[in-house]
Simulated assay, not measured.
Amino acid sequence: MQTIADRLINARQEIDKATASANRPPHSVRLLAVSKTKPVSDIELAYEAGQRLFGENYIQEGVDKIQTLKHLSDIEWHMIGPIQSNKTKIVAEHFDWVQTIDRLKIAKRLNDQRPDDLPPLNVCIQLNIEQEETKSGIIPAELPALVQEIRHLPRLSLRGLMAIPATGVTPEAQHQTLATLASLYTELASQVDTVDTLSVGMSGDMQQAIAHGSTMVRIGTAIFGARNYQQ
């Protein structure tokens, strides 16, 4: 049976292979291990195997893990789930990144509630290019206005874009979505000097995402095994 360390090696090898196939520089794609619903012991095993970036979808679960593992000070914690207004304070106080900004109200609250003794909170704007009703995110036409607003929030650092492309679509539709994301990211990076992250791609579409310029892929089950769903 493969261990978490074995699966991490496999995931990194797949990333390296896809990066090379896309003629991109080595180490230009970061691996975010999605640890939602997984116990602290699994995160510790991944940490021992060299993993430092972890993504959580559920706020309280994530905060509990952050507090339990605070002695591992070089872990980078990413919130990759939706955030309600009444939960912004606890997110601002504990996480290093928020990848799911899709409303100015949430961005402002995170900015206002980010403790002064912490560095600015790294944020990505979530896009919903296919306008799927079950997914959060803004449409591309709304991006310029939200970017300008976030740039005026001193306790936030705009790092890029995040998206969860539709699954089960044709290769042509997938290509179009990823190409649109790549174009929007390139334009944004040319305008904002802190932007360096296009967070797109999971186990099923990682190769295609990397071919279209993704700088961060989010992988969970392929590292930690089948998900333990919350009650």
Score class of each variant (00 low, 15 high):
residue 118 L to D: 15
residue 118 L to T: 13
residue 118 L to S: 15
residue 119 P to Q: 06
residue 121 L to A: 10
residue 122 N to M: 05
residue 122 N to T: 08
residue 122 N to A: 08
residue 123 V to R: 02
residue 124 C to W: 00
residue 125 I to L: 01
residue 125 I to N: 01
residue 126 Q to G: 03
residue 126 Q to D: 09
residue 127 L to K: 09
residue 128 N to E: 06
residue 129 I to N: 02
residue 129 I to F: 07
residue 130 E to V: 01
residue 130 E to C: 08
residue 130 E to A: 12
residue 130 E to D: 14
residue 131 Q to V: 01
residue 131 Q to L: 04
residue 132 E to H: 04
residue 132 E to L: 04
residue 132 E to F: 00
residue 133 E to D: 14
residue 133 E to V: 01
residue 133 E to H: 10
residue 134 T to M: 14
residue 136 S to E: 09
residue 138 I to F: 01
residue 138 I to D: 03
residue 138 I to E: 01
residue 140 P to L: 05
residue 140 P to D: 10
residue 140 P to W: 01
residue 140 P to E: 11
residue 141 A to S: 14
residue 142 E to W: 05
residue 142 E to L: 07
residue 142 E to G: 11
residue 143 L to Y: 07
residue 143 L to D: 14
residue 144 P to V: 00
residue 144 P to E: 08
residue 145 A to Q: 14
residue 145 A to H: 12
residue 145 A to G: 11
residue 146 L to G: 10
residue 146 L to W: 07
residue 146 L to Y: 05
residue 146 L to F: 02
residue 147 V to W: 10
residue 147 V to S: 11
residue 147 V to K: 09
residue 148 Q to H: 12
residue 148 Q to P: 08
residue 148 Q to A: 13
residue 149 E to W: 06
residue 150 I to A: 03
residue 151 R to Q: 15
residue 152 H to N: 15
residue 153 L to K: 07
